[in-house]
Write a protein that binds this DNA or RNA. Structure first.
Lengths: 177, 177
DNA sequence: AAAATATGTCAACAAGGCTGACATAAATTT
DNA sequence: AAATTTATGTCAGCCTTGTTGACATATTTT
């Protein structure tokens, strides 16, 4: 009757390692790399009382000006109620503006203001600098290999989200087209 | 008096692109890659009523068995109150156990149980599979280049956290030593 | 005219961060 | 031996950002 719920079990004292064929090195590298990659903009955002949610919205509104609320929801994969709260703050602070859709007047097209564009750039700059430095330090100037690897990490059915962004030369052959 | 707080400003209709020398391609690839990289374990965790916080704790307890609460806090960079809530659940469910430190009896050494080790492996497996597939698809079998890039993305002063993990052959020369 | 769609909004809830305050046991310092 | 510091635990409350469900409005489609 001991060990009813798994308590009072024995401790495992050996470290998990690459024994079971798990690629721990890259799993952990992705964790640490992403943690620090996001820390740069996080600091700037805090000055504005913003968070990562604001960053994501601001980034995609800048990358796809005029996208509708529904389109933004689709990229971010969150609910409209979640979006509304954060988007409202970006609108109230004059970083984003809404314009009634020209063909369908129910839609709200989202655009950055100059202020919003400037902030998006401020947030992107340290990330870009970090990437640039990392690319240099990786002796193998294998930028292409790194891009291919990262893209291949994305779910196949969602890779279109990448291809649909403007000026992304990173398109694979799609059979025809 | 118009434009008091940045509202009623003009919309910018041009998309942000690689104009200002910002590396948008890799910024976005990291975002999408990490989003999907974490989605695999997230699904499994949901079955247990766990979240990403549980995953992080479980991972590092498995990778550094016997580490103390203070050491874990240092790796995760969260407060002990945040840790306590989640760690308690892992202990109550028999995934992690605490053992009084042998030299310093104030310390609590954290160990995975068999159950905890099994779950950690279940969570790591799909991530490892995704990485393996991505490495294959990146024609350039430049694993080393990718590892170097990711490591170079981490804050220099925090790279020791990577080096201190067991069985990580990814050590740079540190001058002497 | 009726139904469907795009958006907004209200209310309530949860996870997982945070801070501040205080308690305990054990180690260290005086 | 006494006082202080350290490692940990815990209580209470707050914030952000996600969730669901319900309902309102304007506009487009059927």
């Amino acid at each position: 009757m001991a060990d009813r719920n798994g308590k009072d079990a024995k401790p495992i004292r050996t470290a998990l390692s690459s024994e079971d064929g798990i690629d721990l090195a890259i799993i952990e590298l992705l964790f640490f790399a992403y943690r620090d990659f996001t820390s740069d903009p996080d600091q700037i955002l805090a000055e504005y009382g913003f968070g990562r949610a604001h960053h994501r919205i601001l980034h995609f509104v800048n990358r796809m000006p005029g996208l509708t609320v529904a389109e933004l929801l689709d990229v971010l994969k969150i609910t409209k109620q979640s979006l509304a709260r954060v988007l409202k703050q970006l609108i109230d602070t004059g970083h984003v503006i809404q314009i009634q859709g020209p063909r369908d007047r129910r839609q709200r097209e989202l655009y950055p203001t100059e202020k919003g564009r400037a902030l998006a750039l401020d947030l992107a700059r340290p990330q870009s600098r970090r990437i640039s430095a990392a690319l240099k330090s990786a002796r193998t100037t294998e930028r292409a290999g790194i891009e291919q690897f990262l893209k291949a990490m994305v779910n196949p059915e969602l890779r279109a989200q990448i291809d649909n962004l403007p000026g992304n030369a990173l398109r694979e052959s799609h059979g025809d087209e």
